[in-house]
């Protein structure tokens, strides 16, 4: 994959006349976008994080005090704890649903195109709209779930799903899985389809069972695909905000404050832009570390040579 430079096949003389900057020129537009929309904001955020930067009034240099404050911030720690909890649960749930679905829609069967479309449909709904839809579904009086349970005689009184932590958390997990699983399924599907069918056939001739084929052929060959799906899912979950903001406004008794929610609150409710910036930088560092760890664990890149 990597290593094949553009000038490899060209004669040496010509390469000298067109030095490296030509390659730079090609990627310049992309680089410009990255610099303007990523590098500069990050640098500016870093600069802000060293200030007491109120929304109104003038910023004041305070060095690393925002970072010291973070270390003793119990609310930040509990936001981190909740985000971790959410990420673990929702990632497991998404994979537990998406993997069987991917295997299901991979086989050529009747209506498979329709299945794929239906399962993928929720992905194209915006997360905010999906959250609002589920707020309605979960509404105790005029919604769907509670009144339906009551009509079926399962419960005596329509339950308010968003009023207690457990039921609200469960509702949000179901919503996110409904919304995201289709996307993960498509990623896993491409991985499944990239596996040559001869391999599975050969294994079957050698007497490998269904589970053995999955464990020793499918899974190892899908390592990169799984890594991609995992990183997207984990990163997305760590950055979760909309569903908590819209569906529970932070949950019963503040128990659903994710890290991004906390950053939002610090910046735009408490007007501490500086502290919010410091928290953002910390979150960026955490995400980089987690992504590197995932790539290591799944040994992506080792087989490059």
């Amino acid at each position: 994959m990597a290593g094949a430079g553009p000038g490899k096949a060209l004669p040496v003389r010509r390469r000298r006349r067109h030095p490296q900057w030509r390659g730079l020129l090609y990627i310049a537009p992309a680089m410009a976008l990255v610099v303007v929309f990523f590098v500069m904001p990050v640098l500016f955020t870093g600069w802000m994080s060293l200030h007491n930067w109120p929304l109104l009034g003038s910023p004041r240099w305070i060095g690393f005090n925002n970072y010291f404050r973070m270390a003793n911030d119990a609310r930040f720690v509990s936001a981190l704890r909740f985000t971790t909890y959410y990420t673990v649960i929702v990632t497991i749930a998404i994979f537990a649903v998406a993997f069987p679905l991917a295997i299901f829609v991979e086989k050529h069967r009747r209506f498979v195109g329709a299945y794929r479309t239906i399962i993928f449909l929720p992905v194209v709904v915006g997360l905010a709209s999906a959250s609002l839809l589920w707020v309605w579904l979960a509404n105790v009086d005029s919604g769907f779930v509670g009144p339906a349970l009551k009509a079926l005689g399962v419960v005596e009184k329509s339950p308010n799903l968003l009023a207690t932590f457990d039921s609200a958390f469960f509702t949000i997990i179901v919503m996110v899985v409904w919304k995201i699983a289709g996307f993960t399924m498509i990623i896993l599907l491409t991985g499944l389809q990239a596996i040559p069918s001869e391999l599975a056939e050969a294994a079957r001739i050698d007497g490998a069972g269904r589970w053995q084929r999955f464990r020793y052929i499918t899974l190892p060959l899908m390592r990169r695909t799984i890594a991609l799906a995992l990183i997207i899912s984990v990163t997305g979950s760590i950055l979760a905000f909309d569903q908590f903001y819209i569906m529970t406004s932070g949950g019963p008794q503040n128990r659903m404050i994710s890290v991004v929610y906390y950053i939002f609150n610090q910046s735009f409710v408490s007007f501490n832009l500086g502290y919010g910036a410091a928290l953002s930088i910390a979150l960026l560092a955490i995400l980089v570390v987690i992504s590197v760890m995932q790539l290591r664990l799944l040994r992506v890149g080792e087989d490059r040579a």
Binding site: A163, P252, Q253, N254, N265
Partner: peptide
């Protein structure tokens, strides 16, 4: 000076308190 933080914010201590004390 901190009305938003203390009282108005849906995640501030007052809002949390009212729900926790009455429903918790």
């Amino acid at each position: 000076l901190q009305f938003n933080d203390l009282i108005n914010s849906a995640n501030g201590p007052w809002a949390t308190f009212t729900n926790a004390a009455i429903y918790g």
